[in-house]
Design a protein around this nucleic acid. Structure first.
Lengths: 114, 114
DNA sequence: GTATCCACTAACCAAAAGTTAGCGACTAAC
DNA sequence: GTTAGTCGCTAACTTTTGGTTAGTGGATAC
C-alpha cells in the first residue's frame, strides 16, 4: 500500500509535538498546574513519584516553551509561582480527549505490558 | 494554593498515557499506519529519520500494547503487515486535536527552544 | 555472479532520566 | 541556642533509553 505524499510531513509534525509535550513528567506537571498547583512543593506533592531534579528540569523546559509562566515573589521565604500561559491552557484543552481515552483504556493497554 | 485530592490520580493517568504513546517515534508510526502504511518498508519510508532498529522496537511495543496488529503472510518473500486495531484507531482519533494544536503552535513553541 | 530487497538483529555509543545528597536562607520547636 | 524542618534548587553519579552502523538469510533481478 502507498501512503500519501504529505504523510512524512504529518509524521514529522506529530513527532515534534510529542517530543516537546510527551517527555516524561511534562504532561503530569501541566495537569497539576491546571488543578491549581503553583509552587514547587505543590507540584512535588501533586505529581506522584517525581524527583526534585526532574521537576526542576521540566519546569524550566515548560517555561522556555512558553507553556508555564514563572513569577518570583520576593517575600520571606521567597515564593516562586508557576502558572499556565494562554498557550499552556490551550494545550491542556486539546489534551483532554487523550486523558479521557487513558481513563477508559489504560487497563487494557497496561495489561499488555508484562 | 491547594490541589484537589484526585489531582495525583489524574497526574498518574496522564503520565501513563504519555509514557506509552509519547515515546519517541510511537506517534509518528501510528500516524503512518493511519495514512496507509502496512509493511516495514512503508513505515521506514513514511516516518522520516527513523532507523531500522527503532522501527522494529516500536512496532513490537505497539503490537504488545494492542494498538497495532501484526499479520504474517507466507508469500515469497514473506510479508509482514501491521495495521491499527480498533483501540489504535480510537487513540489516533483522540490524538487529532493535539496534532492540530501542533500545526498551529509548533513554531511559537520551537522558537522558544534554542 | 553481483546487486538488491525485505524484515529484522547484534554490538556498540550517546543522551536522557533517575537517585542520592546537599546548599543557603530562613522559621519554629524545645 | 541548638536542633530540626521548609523551600527551591543544584551537583555528582548510575541506570535506562535511544541512536548508529553493520550484518543476517533467503529470495529475485540483471
Amino acid at each position: 500500500m502507498k501512503t500519501p505524499d504529505n504523510a512524512p510531513t504529518e509524521c514529522r509534525q506529530v513527532q515534534s509535538v510529542l517530543d516537546t509535550v510527551g517527555r516524561r513528567w511534562s504532561g503530569a506537571i501541566l495537569v497539576a498546574a491546571s488543578r491549581g498547583a503553583r509552587r514547587f512543593v505543590d507540584f512535588r506533592r501533586t505529581v506522584p513519584g517525581i524527583s526534585d531534579r526532574m521537576l526542576s528540569v521540566r519546569l524550566k523546559e515548560l517555561e522556555t516553551l512558553g507553556l508555564l509562566r514563572r513569577e518570583v515573589i520576593p517575600s520571606t521565604p521567597v515564593q516562586i509561582l508557576y502558572e499556565p500561559t494562554a498557550l499552556g491552557r490551550e494545550l491542556l484543552h486539546v489534551l483532554q480527549p487523550l486523558f479521557r481515552w487513558g481513563e477508559k483504556h489504560l487497563d487494557e493497554v497496561s495489561a499488555a505490558t508484562p
